[in-house]
Amino acid sequence: MTLYVGVALVTAAVVLFLLHPVIQGIHASLEREDDELTETEARKRVALLALRDVEYDFLAGKLDEDDYRTMKAKLTAEALDALAADEAAKGAGSHTGTAAIEAEIAAIRQGIQVGVLCHDCGYNNPVGSRFCSACGRSVAEPVPS
């Protein structure tokens, strides 16, 4: 007898638990969350990551100076493209104008020549970086716009 009561209780509990959202119309979210990277952000990240790899490999003596230069130039161009695309995508939603983006890209382009010191390890990073190529710590400063 106890067994049948137990079985009945378990079954009833399970059925109620499963049907409750459908009957009451409780919806689980199916949306992509806000803090997730967008496609352009992801592209930007990959591009910056590649730059960091090249820096690291050069620093560790795994890359030749010539190769380092050619690859860095190429990857920097890619990274800038990605940055521009990301800014353009964001700009569509926010109020940043094209001029502002141009200015930012110019700043980054200039910064790559000038470089930014990692406040952690002192390594000279391109301004576009959000992290230090040498120690991996974040060097991201709010980019002036």
Binding site: V14, P21, V22, H27, A28, L30
Partner: peptide, 23 residues
Amino acid sequence: GGRTQRGDLVLSAERSIYASFGL
């Protein structure tokens, strides 16, 4: 639920995971 994007069906499906594990 995934196909029709109905959150209530998905919630019920997720609950079935807990129920199955309990059982």
